[in-house]
Design a protein around this nucleic acid. Structure first.
Length: 492
RNA sequence: GCUCCCAUCGUCCAGCGGCCUAGGACUCCGCCCUUUCAAGGCGGCAACGCGGGUUCGAAUCCCGUUGGGAGUACCA
């Protein structure tokens, strides 16, 4: 059924709005499917709706896909022998095919308005919601001429076959729609513009697409596509019909489909927060698929090696931010120290902690502390608050207000004084010595619980109650800066 | 309304007739490790919607029912 060579899958979004995680999940599965089978991934832009499509959205699509490393073999900015790959540049093709389909009687001109259709259904005692009634199928030349004389322009509708339309869905198995349950769909507007109903199957046929993997929301449109394919085959445009697989919907909270307006759906929110591609891709792949029954952390290569469209679940999947974050955190920790540094710098720059091109000194400090931060963050931007204390100007440094009021109270005074005293006399300023000295002075000397003893020191030094390990931080900060901060933190 | 799809822990996924007193992950809760915070280790709570069949045997197959979802556009 599924050949291992010659697979041509496609991803064909409309450039409306910001890339949506559900859309990306679809792209990912198509990509994994194509790569798994050593096939071709075609990237096509469906921008036939001028009112909603935008160039900005188009660029965001490319940007998002590139960030994630989802690459395509044919498509925008890449070309290919079946181009162009933007539907807005394929108008003549659709006009030509539509004309041939019309000439062959597969399409017919329809003049009925929605109001007229409703009237007729009501008059016949039918539910007006049933939709178009195929009234114009067998209009005579005279009738058509009369409508034209009225100034009407026809839409072009596809003559649906009088038979059940069925296919074996790659995800769901056998699916069948009864004959007559789908009204003849409009393929070309009365102003001559082609609709998705025409362009999508036509391009799939022309681009020799073998496998159509798309969202479940498109499942009800499959019967009319199948019908169009039959027509296309009859007029010789193609000689085969692709296989279809309908991927589960990605839901938001509750049972609603994740809406475009929900910030959870915006791909760039994840990038901005510091999700890494390995983590996001891993999580997205879990929305409807699993690699094994005993683990769910995997690399992109493992995904490609194991991906099986037949094992994709038919259930709708809910996007769970907590789990996405947990998976991301695991991938962040798996980064090499050097890689983590490279990737975190842009976030530190955005957060105002470091310049975009850090100095050698800043870099070496960052490298030293990076491994300690790396295992403490969920997303890369978490590093900003955690590292500010290390790079900030001494004049600007001040503990966070909450932390200060909570911890730097009068009780902290003896703790801090004692810490200062012992640290001033420390012969070697290094982690283990600092640790030993502070323990001796505060825990043994003052008889404090460790929790009590180190909290004020931590807040004084790092400005926060949660930070990278304290002694290492102090070593990196240096003796002068550390002591200065401790002195300034002593409650007056 | 009509057509179609879906139905296992709160969530995602495993299970494709006996291995299931249902497994993994996230979340949550304990404990251990750590004289901070994490990470890590161990353990716990928690599910086959309901009713009929088929079968020696059903979470797994069939029918019904209930519940959810999608479509029903001269959007995609």
């Amino acid at each position: 059924m599924t050949e291992t060579t010659g697979v041509r899958a496609r991803f064909c979004p409309s450039p409306t709005g910001t890339p949506h995680v559900g859309l990306i999940r679809t792209a990912l599965f198509n990509w994994a499917f194509a790569r798994h089978h050593g096939g071709t991934l075609v990237f096509r832009i469906e921008d036939t709706d001028a009112a909603r499509d935008s160039q900005e959205s188009y660029e965001q699509l490319l940007d998002g896909l590139r960030w994630l490393g989802i690459d395509w073999d044919e498509g925008p900015e890449k070309g290919g022998e079946y181009g162009p790959y933007r539907q807005s540049e394929r108008r003549e093709i659709y006009a030509d095919i539509a004309a041939r389909l019309l000439a062959a009687g597969e399409l017919y001109e329809a003049y009925s308005t929605n109001e007229e259709v409703e009237e007729r259904r009501k008059a016949a005692g039918q539910d007006p919601k049933l939709g178009y009634d195929n009234f114009d199928r067998d209009l005579t030349d005279e009738q058509r001429a009369a409508f034209v004389a009225e100034g009407r322009a026809p839409v072009l509708r596809l003559r649906m076959p009088a038979e059940d339309l069925a296919w074996t869905d790659l995800v769901r198995g056998d699916i069948s729609f009864p004959a007559g349950s789908i009204p003849d769909p409009v393929l070309v507007r009365n102003n001559g513009e082609p609709l998705y109903t025409l362009t999508n199957p036509v391009d799939d046929a022309l681009m020799r697409i073998t496998h159509v993997l798309r969202g479940e929301d498109l499942l009800p449109s499959t019967p009319r596509q199948l019908a169009l394919y039959q027509a296309l085959r009859r007029i010789g445009v193609t000689d085969f019909t692709p296989e279809f697989g309908h991927l589960p919907t990605v839901l938001g909270e509750g049972t609603k489909k994740l809406s475009k307006r929900d910030p959870t759906s915006n791909l760039f929110n994840y990038r901005d927060r510091g999700f890494i591609r390995e983590g996001l891709l891993n999580y997205l792949a879990l929305l409807g698929w699993s690699i094994a029954d005993d683990h769910d952390i995997f690399s992109v290569d493992e995904l490609i090696a194991a991906f099986d469209i037949g094992k994709v679940s038919a259930n709708p999947a809910r996007f769970d931010l907590k789990k996405a974050e947990a998976i991301n955190a695991t991938h962040v920790r798996a980064l090499s120290a050097e890689e983590f540094v490279t990737r975190v710098i842009p976030y530190l720059a955005t957060g105002g902690v470091l310049p975009e091109q850090p100095s050698e000194e800043q870099l070496s400090k960052l490298r030293a502390i990076a491994p300690l931060v790396q295992e403490r963050v969920t997303v890369l931007s978490d590093s900003v608050a955690m590292l500010r204390f290390l790079f900030i100007d001494e004049e600007t440094f001040a503990p966070e207000e909450d932390a200060a009021t909570k911890v730097l109270n009068p009780d902290a005074e003896p703790v801090l004084r004692s810490a200062i005293e012992v640290l001033e006399g420390l012969p070697k300023w290094e982690t283990s010595a600092i640790e030993q000295a502070l323990k001796d002075a505060l825990v043994d000397g003052l008889g404090l619980k460790p929790r009590k003893a180190f909290a004020p020191v931590r807040v004084a030094i790092t400005g926060r109650t949660v930070s990278p390990p304290l002694y290492e931080s102090m070593e990196l900060l240096g003796r002068d800066v550390s002591l200065g901060r401790l002195r300034r933190a002593v409650p007056q």
